[in-house]
Design a protein around this nucleic acid. Structure first.
Length: 423
DNA sequence: TCTGGGGTCCTAGGACCC
DNA sequence: TCTGGGGTCCTAGGACCC
C-alpha cells in the first residue's frame, strides 16, 4: 500500500508577506488577486472575521478601519521564490516528491523506513519553518485524497499539532471523513457539492458510501475516482515528472473597461508577447493562437459581449512577432464597436516541441534570425527587467493596466529591494 | 466606484467516414 | 415497405484544481 503525504503551506501568501513584516503577526491580513480584486489568501485572524476565499475587496474594505484588517496586493515574484525554497527542502528529504501547486507538495513516503512517521513529519515541518520561515501542515494517507483530508484536519485540530497520519491509523479514517464536509473533499467543487446535498449526502463519509452508479451519473468518472480514493483505493499516483504544458494563457481584467479598439489591441499585443516568452522558456512553440475579449459580466446594466477566435500558425512558432501579429489578426475578426471591454486574453495552444515538429511541405522554415532575435530579447528582459524592450510597450498609464495599490517589495528577487540590516 | 489568473481533464454533440 | 450503426475526430462547454 502506498503512503502519500501532502505538505501544504499555511495561508501561504500571507505567511510570505509576514516574513518581512513581522508587525503583521497576529493581525487579520489578506492578500488580494490581480487588480486588487478579491481575497486569495487569508490569515487565520482574517478567516475568523468571516472573510471568504474570493471575497471581493470592496466588500471587506470596511474591516480595515473597524478591525485593523491589512489588505496587500499580490507579489508573485516573492511567493514563487519562497515556494521553490520550500520545495527544495522537501525534495531533499523525501524519497520522491511532486510539486502540486505553488504551496503544496505531495511526497511518497512508502520507501521511508522510519518507525514513527508522525514524528518524522514533525521534524520535517520544523526544518521547513526554521530554514524558510514558512509554516506548513502535513497530512498522510493511503491515497492522495485521504492525505488531503488528513491535511485539513492537521491544520484545524490542535491535538494533531500540524501532522496527521491516516495511513498508519486506518481506525481514524471513518471519524476523519465524518468530520469533513463534502465540499471540502479534494475534487468536489460547488456544483457537485450541491448535487450531493440534494441527494442527502453531506459529509465525506456519506460520499465514500454513496452508490457508484449515482456517482458516475452525476459526476462522471472523475467523481468516481474521488470516491474510490476516499475508500482507500489509490487511483492517483505520484507524478514526479511535470507533464508537458498543453496551453499557455495570458489574460487580464483591465483596470478600467474600454471601448477603444486601440487600447484593447495594445493589451493583447502585450499579452501575446508575454505568452510567447513563456512558451519559449519552456522550449515549445504554438500551433494556434486564441484570442478572447469580454465585457464586464458583473455590470448587468450594460450590454454584454464575449467573443473569441483562433488563428493557426504553420509552422508552429514561438516568435513574439509572429504571435503578436496573429493575435492582432484575431482581434480584427472578433472586434465589435459599442461595447466596453473589461477583459481580454491570449491563449497559445497546440504546443509542440519545435525539434520534433513534423515538417510542413508548403511553408518555408522560419527565418533563422528569429531564434537569435528572441534570445536577445529574452536576455535583455531578464537583465534589465520586464518591459525594457519588446513588443507592446504601451503607456504605463494605459487604462487597462493592472491596479496594485499595496504591493510589497521584491525582498528576495530584486537587488534594490533587499532588506538591509543595520546595527 | 470596486468581483483574479492560469491551468487540467472530461463529456456531449456534430461532422464525417465506411 | 424497410431509412444503420460503429468509429473517429473535433469543438465547445463545463466541471474541477490552486
Amino acid at each position: 500500500m502506498a503512503t502519500f503525504a501532502i505538505v501544504d503551506c499555511n495561508n501561504f501568501y500571507v505567511s510570505c508577506e509576514r516574513l518581512f513584516r513581522p508587525d503583521l503577526e497576529g493581525r487579520p491580513v489578506v492578500v488580494l488577486s490581480n487588480n486588487d480584486g478579491c481575497a486569495v489568501a487569508r490569515s487565520n485572524e482574517a478567516k475568523a472575521l468571516g472573510i471568504a476565499m474570493g471575497e471581493p475587496a470592496f466588500k471587506i474594505r470596511h474591516l480595515v478601519d473597524s478591525h485593523g484588517l491589512v489588505m496587500l496586493s499580490s507579489n508573485y515574484a516573492l511567493y514563487g521564490d519562497l515556494s521553490s525554497r520550500v520545495m527544495e527542502i522537501l525534495a531533499d528529504h523525501a524519497p520522491a516528491s511532486e510539486v502540486y501547486s505553488i504551496d503544496e507538495c505531495f511526497l511518497d513516503l512508502d520507501r521511508l523506513a522510519v518507525p514513527d512517521l508522525t514524528a518524522w513529519c514533525r521534524i520535517l515541518r520544523d526544518k521547513v519553518r526554521q530554514w524558510t520561515g514558512i509554516p506548513v501542515a502535513i497530512g498522510i494517507g493511503p491515497t492522495k485524497t485521504l492525505a488531503k483530508v488528513a491535511n485539513r484536519l492537521a491544520k484545524k485540530s490542535p491535538k494533531a499539532d500540524g501532522v496527521l497520519d491516516l495511513a498508519n491509523h486506518p481506525e481514524w479514517v471513518e471519524a476523519a471523513l465524518r468530520r469533513t464536509e463534502i465540499g471540502d473533499v479534494w475534487g468536489i467543487g460547488r456544483q457537485w457539492a450541491g448535487s450531493c446535498h440534494l441527494k442527502g449526502l453531506h459529509t465525506a463519509l456519506d460520499l465514500a458510501r454513496a452508490d457508484d452508479g449515482w456517482v458516475k451519473k452525476t459526476m462522471g468518472k472523475v467523481g468516481l475516482r474521488t470516491v474510490l480514493e476516499l475508500r482507500g483505493r489509490a487511483v492517483h499516483t505520484l507524478e514526479t515528472e511535470p507533464p508537458a504544458r498543453q496551453s499557455c494563457c495570458c489574460s487580464r481584467s483591465f483596470g478600467e473597461a474600454t471601448s477603444d479598439r486601440g487600447q484593447v489591441r495594445d493589451a493583447l499585443v502585450n499579452f501575446a508577447a508575454r505568452a510567447a516568452q513563456k512558451v519559449r522558456r519552456d522550449g515549445l512553440a504554438a500551433g494556434t493562437v486564441q484570442v478572447f475579449i469580454m465585457t464586464d459580466r458583473f455590470r448587468r446594466d450594460e450590454p454584454q459581449h464575449t467573443a473569441s477566435t483562433s488563428v493557426r500558425l504553420s509552422p508552429a512558432s514561438s516568435d513574439s512577432g509572429v504571435i503578436v501579429s496573429a493575435a492582432c489578426k484575431a482581434l480584427d475578426t472578433v472586434w465589435k464597436d459599442g461595447f466596453a471591454f473589461r477583459k481580454a486574453g491570449v491563449t497559445l495552444v497546440d504546443l509542440v516541441d519545435p525539434a520534433t515538429q513534423p515538417r510542413d511541405l508548403f511553408t518555408s522554415k522560419p527565418p533563422p534570425q528569429s531564434a537569435q532575435l528572441m534570445a536577445a530579447l529574452d536576455g535583455i528582459d531578464r537583465r534589465w527587467g520586464r518591459g525594457t524592450i519588446g513588443f507592446g510597450l504601451a503607456s504605463k498609464q494605459a487604462p487597462w493596466r493592472m491596479q496594485q495599490g499595496s504591493k510589497s517589495p521584491g525582498y528576495t528577487t530584486r537587488w534594490n529591494d533587499i532588506v538591509v540590516v543595520t546595527s
